[in-house]
Nucleic acid binder design. Sequence first.
DNA 1: GTTTTATTAGACAGAGCTGTCTAATCTTGA
DNA 2: TCAAGATTAGACAGCTCTGTCTAATAAAAC
Lengths: 197, 197
Amino acid sequence: MPDQPTPRGDSTPKRDHLIATASRLFYRDGYHVVGIDTILAEAKLAKMTLYHHFASKEELIVAVLEQRSARANEKVQTVLSEAGPSPRKRLLAYFDRLEGLFSNKEFNGCAFIRAVAEYPDIQSPVHQAVIRHKQRDIDTLKELLSGLDVAEPEPLARQIALLVEGALVSAHTFGDASRLASARDAALALVKAAQKT
Amino acid sequence: MPDQPTPRGDSTPKRDHLIATASRLFYRDGYHVVGIDTILAEAKLAKMTLYHHFASKEELIVAVLEQRSARANEKVQTVLSEAGPSPRKRLLAYFDRLEGLFSNKEFNGCAFIRAVAEYPDIQSPVHQAVIRHKQRDIDTLKELLSGLDVAEPEPLARQIALLVEGALVSAHTFGDASRLASARDAALALVKAAQKT
DNA sequence: GTTTTATTAGACAGAGCTGTCTAATCTTGA
DNA sequence: TCAAGATTAGACAGCTCTGTCTAATAAAAC
């Protein structure tokens, strides 16, 4: 067996550019609305280049989500390590980092939540990619909260995750970034209540 | 000027059947994925019947959302009045009612959140219909909470609304109806904290 | 009973969609 | 140098989409 050519999934300039362009258009307009011809025209690439790197549009969408997930996770880890060891400061840093997303003028909701909305079937590879991302996010929160002296970090992490999900959705629906502040206030109140017990 | 024929927007059997069929298919598969031909085939109606009652697919979607909103609101009001005057019981009844939605085997997330995901532009009539619905829901919560002796019901209502939105999204993403219980627990904790102050 | 309205089936336009195929060209590594 | 892979433009198939139009029929109103 000869050496494979560039295996699908490996990072190459064209592949990365395709993902970046698709990511931007999907996020702005939606996954079904944006066709591959639109992506290719915007990226100035030929159709066969896309189908050389991805077997289908769906595979491209999954790649987009996985790249978004990886970047988001890196960003969070960076912000958390910069925040130092104090659990409370780390939690606040977690919310501060979200502030950047919400107040960005390109903010258009959560790319993952919107992907689930368009691919409601839990069996769909797109939906599955979102599950992986969101589970990791909850795990991050859980680890973060384990530093605080709360009896059970897991349920608390889930509750705070709900607040963040709600803030993402509500900020998008109403075009009101201040929902994040509500979520943060509620999260701090929940932490306080969990500590008092 | 002669009398108008049946004005658009008036309830007629065919129109209602169209909305009911469209509502079911949109909720199951998504707004962009489901075409009008599919709806018409399922409803066993002709295309011109649709365009007699609605100017466009978008108008049909708005009608679907408005009907869902009206029914949801009626349901909540009924449940709340059955719960009696106790604010705490009313809040629990509010969550009990959600329990029914989440544990339904047809549960597929929130039709309104998914509509915003597919129509991210806040100017879109579809998005605007969702805003009207979600605002009314927050108002209901606010009124409900004003019975409790909390200093500011408004921020608390917004926080609990975030929990509910988060539970809707997370239950759909993970296919896990138990997220609602997390939201309810958090909501009760927030109420308790707000009362202690 | 007659006129208006509602509904039907189906063709149709015009556009868009994903994915395939070809044939030529560019790039790169052995 | 040369062979293999990567990329290109574009045509193309086959299907789907929304919305319009026609012509005929059914239902309802007066």
